[in-house]
Every structure is written in C-alpha cells, then in structure tokens.
Amino acid sequence: MTSTVASSPASSAKALEPRTRIAVAGLSKTYGAASRQVTAVDNVSFEVRQGEFVALLGPSGCGKSTILNMVAGLLPKSAGSIRIDADDVEQGLVNRKVGYVFQRDTVFPWRTVEANIGYGLEIAGLPRQQRRDKVESAIETAGLTGFGRSFPRMLSGGMRQRVALMRTLIMEPEILLMDEPFGALDTHTKLEMHKTLLDIWERERQTVLFVTHDLGEALTLSSRIILLSARPGRLKDDFAVGFARPRDAVSLRETPEFARLYTHIWHSLGEEFRRTKAK
C-alpha cells in the first residue's frame, strides 16, 4: 500500500524522522441505522509527521472531507482512533494547536475584513494594539492591503477565502486542516491562492492535511499525497512529492517531473473516478 515510506530501513533512521503529529488508525465512518447502513470511510490508517504537507486526494464523495472533519473533531467517528500528538481527538473538543479552513465561505459577513481576521485573537483577549499589528501584517501577507475596513460582501470569492485563511493562520496553528479550501474558486484565482499558501507554508512549515480532488493542486502544494479509493473511502496509495522548494505554483506545472508524476498518479486516480461514475 505504501510505496515510498516502506523503503526507509533501520530503526536508527527512524529516530531522525520528524515526530508524528496526526495518527489515524482503523478509522471508519458509517451513516444510518443498522439495516440501511452506508459506509463512507472504511478502515483508514495513516500518519502525518511534523512539517509534512499531506494532500488527501480522491474522487468526489470518497469520504475525504469526512476523514478531515473527524480529525478536526467536528464529526463523531464510528470506529478506530485519531490522535493528535498524544491526545485522542474527541468530537466537540477544540484543540488549540489545530487550525481549520472550510471549503464553504464561512467568513462572518457582519465583520469587516480586519475584524474577521482578528476574530480568534479578539476572543482570546489579546490587547487591541497587539491585535492590530498582527492583523495588519496578516492583511499584507494575504495581499488584502486597503481592504481592512471592507465588509466581505464587497470582496470577490477569492478574497473572502484569503480572509478565511488568514483568520485561521493568525492563530499560528501548528497543524492546519484544510477542506478543499480553493474548490469553489476559478482556475486563475486558485493559482494565486496556491502562490500565497506556498509562500506562507515554506516560511512557517506547519503540519498540513489538505483535502482536494484536484491532482494538479495536490502536486503543486504537497510533499506527500494520500490517495483514497471511491466510496467507501479506503486508503489506495501513498506518493511522495519530492519537487524542490521553494516552488513556483505556475512554472512547476511546466516541468517534466511534474508531468511524469501527474500521469503516474492519474492512472491510479482515474480508476477511482471511473468507479465513482459506474455507480
């Protein structure tokens, strides 16, 4: 099942490996009553290590968002275990180390861009002046300079998603869970967002679990791709994405290595897309 990590040899080398931040084991999710049970996620196990950018890739409806939501504690699991560092993830319990970015637009429309980005700091009770400094630099990082006082309805979808991203990142989460955050954006805006995210991540190196159905996106951003099968979601494959960093979201796509890995994973992914369609 694992094609790359399996080759790592002795236990001495293991000590040098970064520590495991997210450990998912035997995770399953079923919906409905016993007679008409639907399995969304079936016995999935994987680990994400410190500083890894892992893409969870699979066709629509394969349960990848369900997995992420269980890791975030937003959804109860049916079986298996999820650990973040040494702690079991309990549904409804918020882990301060974890940041989450939704696919849907969840910025607060009644708050200005500034107030949205500063939300977490505000409720944590950070003094106004410190908050303002942080928010200002976040606005600059996100390329939203000049829009601090705007309300979200005045912004485009891409800009709103930048606000949502910065609202999460300003809390300096060590672990970042992202649920197809750029899924609703057009191709050009998506590329711009990739640039921004790569810039930030290559500086901060958070541990990221990123759900997507877009292979190009997964290859551009991640250092590892976990491929899920069509519903019910099972682990299908695990690829290392070794492109050099810092990466350029646009020119990376023109390299032969990118094309080779793309084709390679595409065959594997294509089978799953066909299976989804056949259903």
């Binding site: 918020v94 974890v98 940041g99 939704f102 969840t106 939300y119 409720i123 609202r167 999460t168 809390m171």
Partner: peptide
C-alpha cells in the same frame, strides 16, 4: 450557518 458556528468554535 452551522459552518460559521463551527468556524468560531475552531477559533476558540
């Protein structure tokens, strides 16, 4: 919006 509530909770 349930997701807005979830977002707020995840922000602490």
């Amino acid at each position: 919006d349930r997701d807005q509530i979830a977002a707020a909770r995840l922000l602490g």
